[in-house]
Amino acid sequence: MTRLGDLERAVMDVLWALPATSDGVTVREVADALDGRELAYTTVMTVLDRLAGKGMVQREREGRAWRYRPAATREAHIAQLMLDALDLGGSRDAALVRFARSVTGTEADVLRAALGAEAGLTDRAGSTDQTGVTHRAGVTDRVEDPRPAGPALDEATDR
Results as ranks from 00 to 15, higher is better:
residue 1 M to N: 04
residue 3 R to T: 12
residue 6 D to L: 10
residue 13 D to T: 12
residue 14 V to Y: 02
residue 15 L to P: 00
residue 15 L to R: 12
residue 15 L to C: 11
residue 17 A to N: 11
residue 18 L to P: 14
residue 18 L to Q: 15
residue 18 L to F: 03
residue 21 T to N: 07
residue 21 T to V: 06
residue 26 T to I: 03
residue 30 V to A: 02
residue 31 A to P: 00
residue 31 A to Q: 15
residue 32 D to H: 06
residue 32 D to M: 05
residue 35 D to L: 03
residue 36 G to A: 05
residue 37 R to S: 01
residue 38 E to Y: 02
residue 40 A to R: 10
residue 42 T to I: 04
residue 42 T to R: 14
residue 42 T to G: 05
residue 43 T to V: 07
residue 44 V to A: 02
residue 46 T to A: 09
residue 49 D to R: 15
residue 49 D to G: 14
residue 49 D to P: 01
residue 52 A to I: 00
residue 52 A to R: 13
residue 53 G to A: 12
residue 56 M to G: 00
residue 57 V to N: 02
residue 58 Q to W: 05
residue 58 Q to M: 08
residue 59 R to E: 06
residue 59 R to H: 05
residue 61 R to G: 06
residue 62 E to Y: 05
residue 64 R to P: 05
residue 66 W to N: 14
residue 72 A to K: 00
residue 75 E to R: 04
residue 78 I to K: 00
residue 78 I to L: 15
residue 79 A to P: 04
residue 80 Q to W: 05
residue 80 Q to T: 13
residue 81 L to I: 10
residue 81 L to G: 02
residue 82 M to I: 11
residue 83 L to G: 08
residue 83 L to W: 08
residue 88 L to V: 09
residue 90 G to A: 03
residue 93 D to C: 05
residue 94 A to Y: 06
residue 97 V to E: 10
residue 98 R to I: 03
residue 102 S to W: 01
residue 104 T to R: 07
residue 104 T to M: 06
residue 104 T to F: 02
residue 107 E to N: 12
residue 109 D to W: 03
residue 110 V to M: 11
residue 112 R to I: 00
residue 113 A to P: 01
residue 114 A to P: 00
residue 115 L to M: 15
residue 115 L to I: 15
residue 116 G to C: 04
residue 118 E to R: 13
residue 119 A to M: 14
residue 121 L to Q: 11
residue 121 L to F: 10
residue 125 A to I: 02
residue 125 A to D: 11
residue 126 G to W: 04
residue 127 S to Y: 08
residue 128 T to K: 07
residue 130 Q to W: 07
residue 132 G to D: 06
residue 136 R to P: 00
residue 136 R to W: 11
residue 136 R to S: 05
residue 137 A to R: 14
residue 138 G to T: 07
residue 138 G to W: 07
residue 138 G to A: 11
residue 139 V to H: 14
residue 140 T to S: 14
residue 142 R to E: 13
residue 145 D to K: 09
residue 147 R to Q: 10
residue 148 P to R: 12
residue 148 P to N: 05
residue 149 A to L: 00
residue 151 P to D: 13
residue 152 A to N: 07
residue 152 A to F: 07
residue 154 D to H: 05
residue 155 E to R: 14
residue 155 E to F: 04
residue 155 E to Q: 08
residue 156 A to K: 09
residue 158 D to N: 09
